[in-house]
Design a binder for these strands. Sequence first.
RNA 1: CGGGGCGUGGCUCAGCCUGGUUAGAGCGCUUGGUUCGGGACCAAGAGGUCGCGUGUUCGAAUCACGCCGCCCCGACCA
Length: 511
Amino acid sequence: MFCLPWFRILRRNLSLSFWVARMRLSKAFVPTLKETPSDAAIPSHQLMLRAGLMRQLTAGVYAYLPLGYKAMLKAMQIIREEMDAIGGQEFHLPALNPEALWMQTGRRNVPNFILSVKERDLVLAPTHEEVIAWIGANHIQSYKDLPQIWYQIQTKFRNEPRPRSGVLRGRQFIMKDSYSLDRTWEELDKSYDAHAEAYRNIFSRCGLKFFVVGASSGAMGGTGSQEFMIESPFGEDTVALCDHCGYAANVEVATSAVPSVGRSAESAMPKEIHTPNVKTIDELASFLKTDHRQLAKSRVYLHDGNPVLVLMMGNDQVNESKLIAAVGGGEVFAAGEEKLVELTGADAGSIGPIGFKGRIIADNRLKDSNNLVSGANKNDFHIINIDLKRDAKVENYFDLRQVEDKEPCASCGKEIRVAHAIELGHIFKLGTKYSEALNMRFLDEQGQSHPVVMGSYGIGVERIVACHIEQSHDENGIAWGKALAPYACHLITVNMNSKEAVLHANQIYQK
RNA sequence: CGGGGCGUGGCUCAGCCUGGUUAGAGCGCUUGGUUCGGGACCAAGAGGUCGCGUGUUCGAAUCACGCCGCCCCGACCA
């Protein structure tokens, strides 16, 4: 019989490729695996190994085999076409960078970021803002030189503490990164919007079911950013989605329409009460037979070493991304047990705003509320009837809470969903952080010097392929869409004993 | 970096607890034969520093210690 080889896992979806590559399967290097390698935990990782797309060399580093590289090349070609369509110019920047360049922007010592070379003062570039700004600083002189969109598709290196999920988080990966250089923030908006549109086109053409979320710009600096995501239980990001109105945001910035506590007419006088063995908000609620809305939880953080007390309603969780934004950037750590006693005189569970020495900020939900219960900064004691306007020196109110599943949507009021997602691309309005650090400036019409306004935009090439597989596979293997399929067409001669059939098949093959 | 797990032919794993013949199985691979329209069968083979090192012992894949590597959870994630 004609024995079907086991690589049926590669099967399906025949169509013509944009490039004419032919290969006889008998000569192709496609090492398939019958069993799932024990190291692979998620479908895309398992199938990329089993289908012979790639092999792992070491943690977070993969060798792409011909079949896998073909799929990646197809994704790269789509990216290239769409980047060119918005006026992007392709570069190939060096992966080896002088360490000194990264010292200038202060990013050399960002934790878990840069991999370096032992023998020289060189580092492996994790991204290319610095090199772009270096080129721009040397060659952009006049407003007439702007705007520019510069991009490349290049291997990046990062000192990932824990690579995982196959190709989704590696130490070495291929990324399309682009950078817009503009004169003004308004023009940056245009470059940014052009990228957003290009990204939509790219992911659509790749056949991905994706969505866009508002995101935090985090330590990159800048004023705005969006992420392009696919929903997946294996994603490392958490997003809030509204299936009714389309609201979508990373939980780092997501809001919901939870009601605030408000203020009652009478503000009773504060009183210390004995609350033995009451450590949690739930215990406090049942001890006092009240609901969470009257309880103000205190969390103490150290912001660049200075204590900040954060008041939250009931069991609302502090969202540290929002907290960082609220306190004006920098680093934030939750204070440890010993530090809590040192700062407040009490353990976690009995800490409160009254008598706290340091900044106090509170979540919007508690704005101007009264008759609240919080810790007394004395173990086993709480204070009731706290009026935040009268009794506590709350410096300011911010949105500090983490949204939860099933809360009402901030824009339509219906139920939101909190889900995991994989980030495919991220676009940032960077601003002038890097252009100032590296002195990339231009002269305007009046001869005034200004820093170039930058945007930065990334796409993970491997993630496109892996996400496609996550979204398109079954028990038989990968169901390739035609956009990324390594080969468009699989020509099978059913009866190799028929000279006529073989001849015919070969004729078709030659075409 | 904290917690957990694992490391035995290309892949998946057994053996280890209760040290003792030439270290096993399935899949894959090679050769020969059979089969021949839906993931073949029979037979014979090749292939292993049992992650590395030190130690305990007459004797270590098996026990102890150290190291390395990989995976998962967490922290982190520009």
